[in-house]
Write a protein that binds this DNA or RNA. Sequence first.
DNA 1: GACACATGTTAGAGTCGGCTAACGTAAGTA
DNA 2: TACTTACGTTAGCCGACTCTAACATGTGTC
Lengths: 110, 110
Amino acid sequence: MSVDNQLRALAEPHRRRILELVRDRELAAGEIAAHFDVTRSAISQHLTVLKEAGLVVERRDGARRLYLAEPSGLAGLKKFVDRFWTTSLARLAEEAEAEARRDESTDRAR
Amino acid sequence: MSVDNQLRALAEPHRRRILELVRDRELAAGEIAAHFDVTRSAISQHLTVLKEAGLVVERRDGARRLYLAEPSGLAGLKKFVDRFWTTSLARLAEEAEAEARRDESTDRAR
DNA sequence: GACACATGTTAGAGTCGGCTAACGTAAGTA
DNA sequence: TACTTACGTTAGCCGACTCTAACATGTGTC
């Protein structure tokens, strides 16, 4: 559930594709596996990782297990990216302002 | 520069801490390494990964190399997270609406 | 119960990633 | 030039990760 787990989970291309598959609709494990050319076993393990990272939720329906993306699981990661993004951009804006002030005083000095 | 590279780079706790260190100010490789209890070598390798992912920029100053976070490098990742976030939330909203409609017609049926 | 179906779990092989130690390189200094 | 400072790079170890193959579990059906 930590940002660390979420990032590690997302760092795997297969897992990102799985996540996109179950973003809009519930899918059974087998249906998900059908989209890939690796074993069902591999997909099952990927689903476990995604589940433990809180990025998908599992629901049982008889013998099947249905998976669906859990957007709130991305909350921590989104906060991390947004915070970094805005803070860095603020720094850039400050630098631009500082440069503008420098240019201005240079002009005045002429 | 791809989202894949960015996510792999961010999936390492040391690299995330490095990124936060150079978010607001330029730091030399040695100064960065001083914040950690691993070898300078390890930090140097992390810096290479961050650089190749486009998350930091390197500037030479004599014998020193200064590093600074590159917010634009996060653009792709931010887009990925935002897109996923908003799309998933839209799905949740739709589901909530559908349920509200169901409840309403149930009420009417009484 | 017997069987088929859907899926999870485990063992083991191969690969990747992070780390240290040792070496290499380039810039500054006496 | 000789020496120091500040880094990067490489080789190799070790643990973590991904995959397949085989086995285990649980559910529905006859």
